[in-house]
Design a protein around this nucleic acid. Structure first.
Length: 211
DNA sequence: ATCCCGAGGG
DNA sequence: CCCTCTGGAT
């Protein structure tokens, strides 16, 4: 595309380093205890704030402690638990179907494998990467609306880059041991410092000085 | 490309 | 009112 010049690798790494310097200890904000509940929480977080997910999970997880219990639940009961969050009908369906597969095929254990995770209903690349990173400490960069928006605003990737393109680009720019923490920092930078509604369109105005 | 989809903020 | 929220399936 014309008029879509990307910044250099060196400039991109500098931008990412400065974002990380703002949120050096950033962590995920979803509430969960077991890996199964992590998977459920991340699945429910699509197009919905963490805060809203956290408002429904305590009762949901108390009533359905594991995949075997959730697999037995009725769809309308799950919907009733989560109806205050967006996309609740499809999420309720996906939760039950995923719980059924986890309980029957994996004996209640969450597979530590991206391709297997992505075969679960309602689980795509972003959700799989969050489960791997948060649950298993496996280096991964989950690309969501914030990571995409910020990567495009700084022209680290082209404006028409798909989420997978963004993931590949960021992973080639950063050493593996910085993938997870940079991902977290980008989420918080996008949520609190440079939200989508920002009026200032120069993204560098949101960055701290590079010390 | 379109649909899903309530809550919160501006 | 409009836009956005850690997307995924069809």
């Amino acid at each position: 595309m014309v008029n879509d010049e990307l910044i250099s690798d060196e400039q991109a790494r500098d931008v990412l380093k400065r974002i990380l310097s703002l949120y050096p200890d950033a962590k995920g904000e979803l509430h969960w205890d077991t890996k199964f509940h992590l998977l459920c929480a991340v699945l429910m977080s699509a197009q919905t704030t963490d805060k809203m997910v956290n408002s429904v999970t305590p009762k949901l997880f108390a009533d359905y402690p594991d995949s075997f219990a959730l697999a037995q639940a009725k769809i309308n009961e799950i919907e009733e638990h989560i109806k205050t969050i967006g996309l609740f009908r499809s999420k309720a369906k996906h939760l039950k179907e995923t719980a059924t597969i986890i309980s029957e095929k994996y004996d209640g254990q969450i597979p530590k494998d991206k391709k297997l995770l992505m075969q679960l209903p309602g689980v795509g690349e972003k959700t799989a990467n969050v489960v791997l990173a948060e649950g298993f400490k496996v280096p991964a960069i989950a690309v969501d609306t914030h990571v995409s928006r910020i990567s495009k605003a700084f022209k680290i990737v082209s404006q028409n880059a798909k989420p997978h393109d963004v993931e590949v680009r960021l992973e080639e720019l950063l050493p593996k041991d910085e993938w997870i923490k940079t991902h977290h920092a980008m989420i918080l930078f996008g949520r609190y410092t440079m939200p989508a509604r920002s009026k200032d369109k120069n993204p560098y105005h949101f960055l701290p000085e590079n010390k």
